[in-house]
């Protein structure tokens, strides 16, 4: 009986974790994709930035189609979460990494990450509710590419298409995409958040179906490495 009580106390204490100092490092592992401004958030168990198999929230759609993390940041603020907003001060290039500190408070024991992948229609690198370890040490998490399910992957670079419901890829920061494609598809078959099937691309930079280069803009998972050091 005493043992049980002790265990229960331990569990309760674990749930009411005190502040934790985390060093967060994100590495863009891809060959040819840029990450838009990252949002790294510590939050309680019952909040989310996204959920695979569920329809994207308008806030997620804005991030995934246009790289805008303002609304997702507000969601985290509303649940008294802790956010690391845009640590790279803009785009995180292929092969590049960024480090920053994040201090968690209260019951913000779960870590989530999002950033749009460019050039894609509504692809993003994501991590949903990774339980932050309480033991000091360095932990590595590999992150996959998701499709927000909110836009058909036509793979056409269209200026201004970062706004929700305007089809197209808003930018190709590597400067290595084409133009004049006819479009890969008009359909989004899975309209929930799902693992991205990857881009098709083609070998015709001034025509073909896709504006993407199939030697440069494809990827295989994982697309990012998250290194968390619990201080």
């Amino acid at each position: 009986m005493l043992k049980k009580t002790l265990c229960l106390t331990t569990l309760l204490l674990a749930n009411v974790a005190v502040a934790a100092d985390l060093e967060i490092k994100v590495t863009n592992l891809t060959y040819g994709l840029h990450f838009t401004p990252l949002l790294v958030a510590a939050h309680p168990a019952d909040s989310r930035l996204f959920q695979a198999g569920s329809t994207a929230t308008p806030a997620l759609q804005k991030m995934a189609e246009g790289g805008d993390i303002a609304e997702l940041t507000s969601i985290i603020s509303a649940v008294a979460g802790n956010s690391l907003v845009n640590p790279a001060n803009g785009l995180l290039a292929p092969g590049a990494e960024v480090s920053a500190m994040l201090t968690t408070t209260g019951s913000n024991n779960y870590l989530s990450v999002t950033a749009m992948l460019l050039p894609t229609n509504d692809g993003f690198v994501g991590l949903n509710s990774w339980p932050i370890p309480t033991e000091k040490g360095t932990y590595t998490v590999m992150l996959n590419a998701y499709d927000a399910g909110t836009e058909a992957n036509n793979e056409l670079v269209v200026e201004g298409s970062g706004a929700p419901n305007i089809p197209g890829i808003p930018a190709a920061p590597g400067g290595n995409a084409g133009s004049g494609g006819t479009g890969v598809t008009l359909e989004e078959l899975n309209t929930t958040v799902h693992i991205h099937r990857g881009s098709l691309g083609d070998d015709n930079l001034s025509g073909g179906k896709s504006d993407l280069d199939n030697r440069v803009h494809r990827w295989l998972n994982p697309v990012a490495r998250l290194t968390v050091t619990v201080k």
Binding site: L29, T30, Y31, G32, P94, G95, G198, G201, D203, N214, R215, V216, H217, R218, W219, L220, P222, V223
Partner: peptide
Amino acid sequence: QVRMHSGVV
């Protein structure tokens, strides 16, 4: 730069 491979087309 070493990067993850994007696969062969």
